[in-house]
Design a protein around this nucleic acid. Sequence first.
DNA 1: TCCTAGTGTGTACAACTGTAAACGGAGGGC
DNA 2: GCCCTCCGTTTACAGTTGTACACACTAGGA
Lengths: 146, 146
Amino acid sequence: MSESVQNSIQEITPSEWELMRIVWTKGKIYSRELIDLLQEKRSWSDSTIKTLLRRLVQKGLLKTEKKERRFLYTATISETAAMNGSAEQLFDHLCAMKKGATLLNLVDHVTLTQDDIAQLQAALSRKVKTAPKQVPCDCLPNDEQC
Amino acid sequence: MSESVQNSIQEITPSEWELMRIVWTKGKIYSRELIDLLQEKRSWSDSTIKTLLRRLVQKGLLKTEKKERRFLYTATISETAAMNGSAEQLFDHLCAMKKGATLLNLVDHVTLTQDDIAQLQAALSRKVKTAPKQVPCDCLPNDEQC
DNA sequence: TCCTAGTGTGTACAACTGTAAACGGAGGGC
DNA sequence: GCCCTCCGTTTACAGTTGTACACACTAGGA
């Protein structure tokens, strides 16, 4: 079901997200088109974007396919996997006790569709059956609570 | 003049999270105690931790108070603010259309208490009244959808 | 055939991160 | 008074990220 992650994907930097999102949306794309699209949002030089592309290939997040003179770039992981992986990575840094509060803040601030909300509600109903009364803080090596 | 909190907090690196969590939990702490606590989880040298402390002070995430020979370190932002800020920063990188799915994945994977779930459910019920049918993708400069 | 425009590669360089050794000043024990 | 220990400061160094210039190669037009 939910595309959970095989524990920590490559770290994706903010600039890299911008390229990746375009690649994911287009599926396959030539560097030229990507550069043009990106330059409508960011004033990065061609060079900068080419460097970022190269690094993403090195990192294994993009792969290339030679078409005549040029390369077609495609992502090697799905957008969903990347999003879930990054979100989980972030949550790994948070105090276990306070993850709920952070989630609540996100729910308050993110724009959600009717359908998103319905799915979240369903998930919560399922989850409530086995949810604990409380979750201990895991910030310190001993069991001191915060 | 303090406290002009700009919309995004200082970036906190993974290593820095580890120190910050201890500081938040203890409120005020001497470097010695912090180092001892941290070394029960990470095998970092004293030096490494002292460097991280110094950088956190430079970044303005920690402040110091001189007590005799030593410094007491305290956080300048609340843990909640840091968590919410970081989570929001991450979500800023995601396709607007798919934020809901990412949230759903988190809800599925994070351990939540009964109370967390109740609060989330309340927030969702509130939100459903004004939620849109759909949220458009914002990955590309034109309105092409993914 | 030769130049040109388009695409990828090499190189650069400053800032930030992870990691840590070495140094310097001060208070406490001898 | 002297040295040791504790704690903060300096310095170091490799790897990553942001940003970009310059170069090399090739297909197609002049």
